[in-house]
Amino acid sequence: MEAIRNIVVLTGAGVSAESGIDTFRSAGGLWEQHRVEDVATPDAFARDPDLVLRFYDMRRAAIQEKAPNPAHEALARLDREWPEKPGHDLLIVTQNVDDLHERAGAGRVLHMHGEHLKAWCTACSVRSPWRAPLIDRPPCPACGARALRPDVVWFGEMPYEMDRIYAALRRADLFVSIGTSGAVYPAAGFVRDARALGIRTLELNLERSQGSAWFDETRLGPAGKLVPAWVEELLAD
């Protein structure tokens, strides 16, 4: 078996769930109280911006009270210890819009669905770090327009940096999916792209996903246990 040099890791809601961040499908969380059509689409924002801004203000405040868990910390360790040199690379592509990967210490992170802790000005297109509420229509730090929205990819919008993700997949020796449902595209299709390229594929998940059949190997269990064990195994090899 050839040595692993280039790795693409995809993380989903199951990684942050153990930190207490409710997933889209979780019971009892903020998502259960709102329909997707009412808070997570461009049409919803145009129809009732106050509802959408209030919803994301709650989520932005909530994630700032959470802390990274052992899965985040293990991936941060992988980021620190995996070589950064020609022929070696690591990219952590996350569907999550929290900052727990970064707070754990990971640097090579790409947020394909945006970030709660950024605001996007629809007037000048500048994205600014943001921790405060948006409901009162604060001015954009760059241009002063009161045109800020959450820098989060809504249903019907194109995820960020897809060209960079596909370029990383083409170079990869290993694709690992952690805590994803396998139901949200285009991320759910990455395993098929990897298989078509002859890349080894591994799934770490609490339960089998809609895409499990496409992986070479699936390991089931909590991310907080599976991810540290896999990182330890990978670095030992």
Rank of each mutant, 00 (worst) to 15 (best):
Y56F: 15
E32V: 09
V39I: 15
R54Y: 00
A71R: 04
H88L: 03
K85T: 13
A67K: 15
H34V: 02
W31M: 07
E81H: 08
P49F: 11
P70D: 09
A61W: 06
T23Y: 00
D57E: 11
E37T: 09
R77Y: 09
G20F: 02
P68R: 08
L30E: 13
P83M: 08
H34W: 13
Q64N: 04
L51C: 05
F24C: 07
R80D: 12
E84Q: 13
R77V: 11
F55D: 04
R35S: 10
D79F: 08
E32M: 02
K66P: 00
R80V: 04
Q64R: 15
D57P: 03
A27L: 09
L78I: 04
L78V: 02
A61F: 03
P86D: 15
L53P: 07
T23N: 05
G29H: 05
F24D: 14
A27G: 13
V52D: 03
A71E: 06
D57S: 06
D79W: 12
R54W: 05
V52L: 04
R80N: 07
P68I: 10
D79E: 07
T41W: 09
R25G: 02
D22C: 01
R77L: 15
A46Y: 03
L30D: 13
E84H: 10
H34N: 13
A74D: 07
G20V: 05
R54Q: 10
W82S: 02
V36T: 14
K85G: 04
A46M: 11
H88T: 00
W31L: 10
W82D: 01
A40K: 04
